[in-house]
Design a protein around this nucleic acid. Structure first.
Lengths: 331, 331
DNA sequence: TTGAAAGCGGTACCAA
DNA sequence: TTGGTACCGCTTTCAA
């Protein structure tokens, strides 16, 4: 590589490599005058410490891994922004992995990450996971913060107030007069999916509206399947309101209502969990429960860095509240 | 770390570390029977090579850096997906950096990346760059592929057919009868911004429509500024068509038209470069020039990996064509 | 306050 | 086909 090494610096200044190393780390063992000379030379030669060498020795990399289900998604995109901001402040680097909601890939990455000598992990888990053994394992071996999509066993996590926000969403429709409120379920294998569903049930109960199974659509990761199910829902079950637990499903409903000539909000009011930045521009504009994605990412990263600093840590969790934006789709 | 090392394996099998190392790399020097024993043991103990150690020795990391202006953006989100897919296939890891369109940050990252011992770099450059010296430098020291946002000096790059697609976009409006076609300029410091503008000019010329400076709005990274300029454009200059070189500006126009009661497409037709996945759901649905972001990312990564494999390389470029989706906003 | 030297875990050369 | 060993660049202990 022909890069400048500590040895070069040592030879140039006629001191030992040990002295250089200590000086660069601003050790108290080294005199100020020596430090000054070392710093100056290092700077002028644009010395960059070799991360392999220091990593090998110190067993740390100043790098964290981030495992996400996807990235071409407003929520995760914004979350990464938050993570990046926090990481940059602390001088950490970010390794990115996309599970595409496959727990198999996720498990593979986790194994991979364990061998990468990263200092910590930030993860939002995939939803098709049947078991969480790889998650149990990683969290024992590596400081791990779960965010948004967590699982029961997670020690450190940053979540949305899923129950409350789904409750609010459903209440908003009930307040608006809806009595046949459908719920588009997703992420049901995960804690946050569950919480959202419970929030929906809770609101129904508070309003004395009986639960009807046919109003619940269990969605999958297959777009065609979802389309068929939702088409059936809108055409035959005819709810007067829809709470969508994820953005993707709300979009499909818009298409279906367009196709069927169903009026939003006249025939059906729609509210969705969503971080779409153009929700206000939709036809009609979409009422959303918007998670504070940037904040969640930033909080999760911050929690991780705190843990990395203290090394000993206990379970910790943080909730970032979502916001309700009322728009035309529920007017 | 208490991790399994080559030494453990060597002791267990009563062979030398050299033998283990070679066996694991499937060297022809090692007998099949020994290899088999080594592989089996390594597998059963879940041995993971220490990347610092091998990196230190081999001067390669199996990691590439990706520097992007932003990520909570459909284009770049999709592009990363493409990059990730290619990287995963080749067993590479991805380090992500976000410049937020600051060339200062970009230069900082580049310096940082140089010290990280990554094998290569994928970059889409920030638009506020006054000079490109840091880009010249990195491309000499590290295999670097520029994508989407390149600069003149780039040796390896993957771009959009910017001239042609802007030409098409403008032609589409002119074909539709517009004669006062405004152009919302962005990325003017970059090659692709230039090409798009030239495409606009080219189409005007072909139709014999004179260029008018007042129809061109030079946008910045400041939303309020842009809003004011666009407000003035729509309210006072009153174009009958708008070609937006980036998505963000088209969205602002939608808001402004809403506010002013200007009808799209009745009063103004709008077409925009955009990777918005909900373009079809907007009110009215937005006609777009959609770049093949995923493809571009994948191609760029593929080009980089090819170069990494051959080590000696020449200038190479690839163009991925954008697609025109005609929708209601230009009907 | 400084330096000598032993590693960190692999790799690769050379000898056996 | 296998083993011994120097070494990649940096950190850290211990001695000076």
């Amino acid at each position: 590589m022909g890069e400048i090494t500590i040895k070069h610096l040592a030879e140039t200044l006629n001191v030992s490599t040990a002295t250089i190393s200590k000086a660069l780390r601003d050790s108290h063992e080294i005199s100020n005058s020596t430090k000054a000379r070392v710093f100056e030379l290092a700077k002028s030669l644009n010395y960059r410490p070799n991360p392999f060498a220091s990593g090998l020795r110190r067993q740390k990399s100043n790098t964290i891994a981030v495992i996400l289900p996807e990235i071409a998604d407003n929520f995760f995109g914004q979350a990464i922004n938050g993570i990046e901001e926090a990481a940059r402040q602390k001088g950490y680097h970010l390794l990115i992995y996309l599970s595409h909601d496959s727990s198999e890939r996720e498990a593979f990455f986790i194994n991979d990450v364990l061998g990468r000598c990263v200092d910590g992990l930030l993860i939002s888990i995939s939803f098709d996971g049947a078991n969480f053994s790889h998650l149990d394992e990683i969290q024992q071996k590596l400081p791990t913060v779960f965010f948004d999509r967590t699982y029961e066993g997670s020690l450190l996590h940053v979540t949305n107030n899923d129950y409350d926000s789904a409750f609010e969403a459903t209440k908003h429709l009930l307040d608006g007069g809806c009595r046949n409120v459908a719920y588009l379920a997703a992420l049901q294998t995960l804690d946050n999916g569950n919480q959202r569903f419970k929030g929906y049930l809770g609101a129904l109960q508070q309003f004395g509206v009986p639960f009807r199974q046919e109003l619940v659509v269990d969605c999958t990761n297959n777009r065609d399947d979802n389309y068929a199910k939702l088409f059936h829902l809108v055409k035959n079950v005819k709810p007067d309101g829809i709470v969508s637990s994820i953005e993707k499903l709300a979009k499909i409903c818009y298409h279906i209502c367009n196709d069927l000539g169903v009026d939003i909000p006249g025939d059906i009011k729609i509210i969705s969990f969503s971080n779409l930045d153009c929700a206000a521009l939709l036809n009609p504009s979409l009422t959303t429960i918007t998670q504070q994605a940037f904040e969640m990412g930033k909080e999760a990263a911050t929690m991780l860095f705190k843990v990395l600093k203290n090394s000993n840590y206990e379970a910790e969790s943080k909730v970032v509240k979502a916001q309700l934006f009322k728009r035309m789709s529920t007017r």
